[in-house]
Simulated scan of single mutants.
Amino acid sequence: MKKITAVIPIRKGSQRVINKNLRPFAGSDLLTIKINNLKKVKGIDDIVVNTDSEDAIEIAINLGVNFHRREDYYASSECTGSDFFEHLGNVTETEIFAYCPVTSPFVKIETMEEAIKDFYNDVNHDCLSTVSVVKEFLWLDGKAVNYDPENAPNSQNLPNIEALNFGFTLVRREDLIKNRNIIGKKPKFTKTTDIESIDIDTPLDFFVAEQIYIKTVLETKGLLD
């Protein structure tokens, strides 16, 4: 079996939700939750926190996982997505790269394990990534994108547009560096549930995700007083 390294990208300068990766979340924090979940995933050989945050490095050390201290440019707004992905590939010694942002706290351990098995058994695709199905009436530049306004369908009959949610992505390191992207030329998508698809990007996202986490994770496990 090839080595799989789960990389958790953490930038201390998050802009829309200040310090969202490390601020208190349901009695813990998003980074700690992500590390503890990844430790339970069969098939993951190593966990690396890629960060410019000394606080994140301290959490990584305390939880017994590795870290890469990110250079300033790759933590700045000047760094493009392509530059950043290439950087992740260049500094991560592995064969298969797993992209695991903390902003997706609901991706199930079972979902990740099934994705790993699927990726190993598939020779026709160069990456596997989680997606959400979008059933919305979409417009761009004053034009409908996915339906005919003169023959408007019911919402359930709209096409199943798949949106990357980046909850869990697997890609071979060589392809990550070559393509400068975690999404390859022949991607395979696996659909996640509505809750698993939650991505924390705004203050409202953070608030809603915390309430859902308390209800669906902590209360069901009896971890609340």
Rank of each mutant, 00 (worst) to 15 (best):
R69F: 10
I18K: 15
Y120E: 14
W139Q: 10
I18A: 14
N50T: 07
L30N: 03
D118H: 11
V131L: 11
Q156S: 12
A56H: 12
V107F: 07
T32M: 00
D126A: 06
H125W: 01
I18M: 11
T92M: 01
H87Y: 15
F106T: 01
G89S: 02
D52K: 08
E54K: 08
G43S: 10
D29W: 07
T103P: 01
E114F: 08
E113N: 07
S77P: 05
V65K: 02
P24M: 12
E150D: 12
I47R: 14
P101H: 06
H68V: 08
T111I: 03
A26V: 06
T130P: 11
V102Q: 08
T103I: 11
V102D: 01
D72P: 15
P105I: 02
D52I: 00
I44F: 10
A115S: 15
S76N: 09
N50M: 14
L22D: 06
N160G: 02
V102G: 06
D55A: 06
I18L: 14
Y73Q: 05
E110T: 13
E114S: 13
T111Q: 11
D45E: 04
E58S: 12
L88C: 10
L22Y: 12
M112C: 08
Q156M: 06
F84S: 02
A144E: 09
F84Y: 15
T80F: 11
L38H: 02
L140F: 15
L88P: 07
N66T: 06
N160D: 13
L31N: 10
S82H: 12
S132T: 08
A144Q: 10
D55L: 05
N90I: 00
Y73A: 03
F25E: 04
G27P: 11
L88G: 05
N21W: 08
H125T: 09
N151Q: 13
Y147S: 07
S104F: 02
D72F: 04
I59Y: 06
D122T: 07
L138N: 10
R23N: 11
